[in-house]
Nucleic acid binder design. Structure first.
Lengths: 207, 207
DNA sequence: TAATAGTTTGCAGTGAGTGCAAGTTTGTTT
DNA sequence: AAACAAACTTGCACTCACTGCAAACTATTA
C-alpha cells in the first residue's frame, strides 16, 4: 500500500475535502443552506462538481462536515471509563466533551442554528447520530456486561440523545439558560426517574 | 365557504390522496422504496406526476402515508387524561394506541421494516415526529401546569420517543420479543430512573 | 523512465421537485 | 339554466441533485 498518509496524494485529498467542507459551511451560512448549489461549492473549492460527489454523498454531508474524531473520542471515552462510573455519568461526560469542542470552534451557535433551520441538514444529522447511537450502544452494552439485545444500554444512549436535543431546543428558545445547565437538568431527570407516578395498569400480556 | 366536506370535490380529493398513498406503499413494498419513481406512483393512481406533487411534497411522504388522525388522537388523549394520571403513563397509552392502529392495519411489520430499511423514509418519519413531539410537549406542559420552557415535559415526550425507537430496533433484532413488552420495559426504566448510580461531579456552575 | 494505481473531470442521462399558464371540473349565484 | 367564480388537474419548461462511464491526468513504485 502506497505510503500511508504522509504522501502528496493523501495530503491533497485532505486539503480538497477540507476546502469543500469549508466552502460548503461558509456558503450555507451566507445564503441559507437551501440556496446553495453544489456547483457553487465546487467552484469555491476549485474542483469540478463531479469531484464534489467523489468526496461527499450529499450536499448536506459537506455542510455538516461531521468530524469523525467526535465519535471516535466518544467511543474511547466509553471504553476507558473507570469501572465504578455509572453509564449515564459517562454519557454526560461525552456530551459535555462534544459541547466543549463545538464551543471551541465557535460553531455551536452558528452551525447549530443552521441545522435547526434546515430539514435536510437535520436529516443528515439524525442519520449520522443514529449510527453513532448504535456504536455507542454496542460499546456500552459490552461495558455493562449486558447482552446486545438488552433494552437498558440502548435506552440510556438514546435517552441521552433526547436530553441533548431537548437542551438544544430549550436553549434556542431561551438563550439565557446555558446549554450545559439544561443538559445537566435533563440527565438528572433521566437518572432519578422522569416520572415517579408512572403506573402501568395491570398489563394484559400479549394480545 | 363551499360545502365543507361532503361535496363531490372533497370526496374526490380524499380518494386521490388515498389512491396515491396506497400505490406508493404497495410499489415501495414490491420494489423497494428506492426503486420506485414518482412517475410510477402517479401512473398507478391514474393522475399526472404534477398532481402527485400537489398532494405530497416528497415521494417519501406519500409512502409514509402518515395518518393525521394519529397525532390528533394523541393530542386528544393528552388533553383529556384524568388529572391523577401521571405524564409518562399517558405517553404509554398513546404509544400503545398507535401500535394498536398499526397492527390493525397489518402494517406494523410491513411498513416498519420498509422504514427501517430506507434512510430517506426514516428522515421523513423523524421530521414529522419532531413536529409531533413539539405539539405533544406543548399539550403536556400545559397539562402539567409548567412553563413552556421547562425541561421536564419536553424530556418526557422526547424520551418516550426514544423508548419507542429502541423498542422497534430491539424487536427487529429479536422478533420473538413482542414489541409491547419492549416498549413497557423502556417506559418502566424511564419512570424509575435509568441510572441510579448517576453522579455529577461537583458541578462548576455556569462557566 | 516505464508501468501502475489512484484521482479528476466531462458527458450523458435519470429523476426529484417547482412555477406558470391553460384547460377542466365543481360549486354558487342569479 | 346560464354564467361566473373558485378549486383542481395537467403539460411544459426549467433547475438541481446525483450516478455511471470512459478518457485524461498524476503521484507512486519498480
Amino acid at each position: 500500500m502506497t505510503q500511508a498518509e504522509g504522501g502528496l496524494r493523501a495530503r491533497k485529498k485532505r486539503e480538497t475535502r477540507a476546502a469543500l467542507a469549508e466552502a460548503a459551511l461558509r456558503l450555507a451560512l451566507e445564503k441559507g443552506p437551501d440556496n446553495v448549489t453544489v456547483e457553487e461549492i465546487a467552484e469555491a473549492a476549485d474542483v469540478s462538481v463531479r469531484t464534489f460527489f467523489n468526496y461527499f454523498p450529499h450536499k448536506e454531508h459537506a455542510i455538516l462536515g461531521r468530524n469523525p474524531e467526535h465519535i471516535e473520542r466518544a467511543l474511547d471515552r466509553m471504553r476507558e471509563a473507570p469501572a465504578e462510573e455509572s453509564p449515564l455519568t459517562t454519557m454526560r461526560f461525552i456530551v459535555h466533551d462534544v459541547l466543549r469542542d463545538l464551543e471551541g470552534e465557535g460553531e455551536l451557535s452558528r452551525r447549530g442554528e443552521l441545522i435547526m433551520a434546515s430539514p435536510h441538514l437535520l436529516y443528515q444529522l439524525m442519520l449520522s447520530s443514529f449510527e453513532d447511537e448504535r456504536q455507542l450502544t454496542e460499546a456500552l452494552a459490552e461495558r455493562m456486561g449486558e447482552p446486545a439485545t438488552s433494552v437498558r444500554p440502548a435506552l440510556i444512549v438514546s435517552a441521552s440523545g433526547a436530553a441533548c436535543r431537548v437542551a438544544m431546543e430549550r436553549h434556542k428558545a431561551d438563550p439565557d439558560r446555558p446549554i450545559r445547565e439544561l443538559v445537566d437538568e435533563g440527565f438528572q431527570l433521566l437518572a432519578e426517574g422522569i416520572d415517579p407516578g408512572f403506573r402501568v395498569v395491570p398489563t394484559k400480556g400479549h394480545p
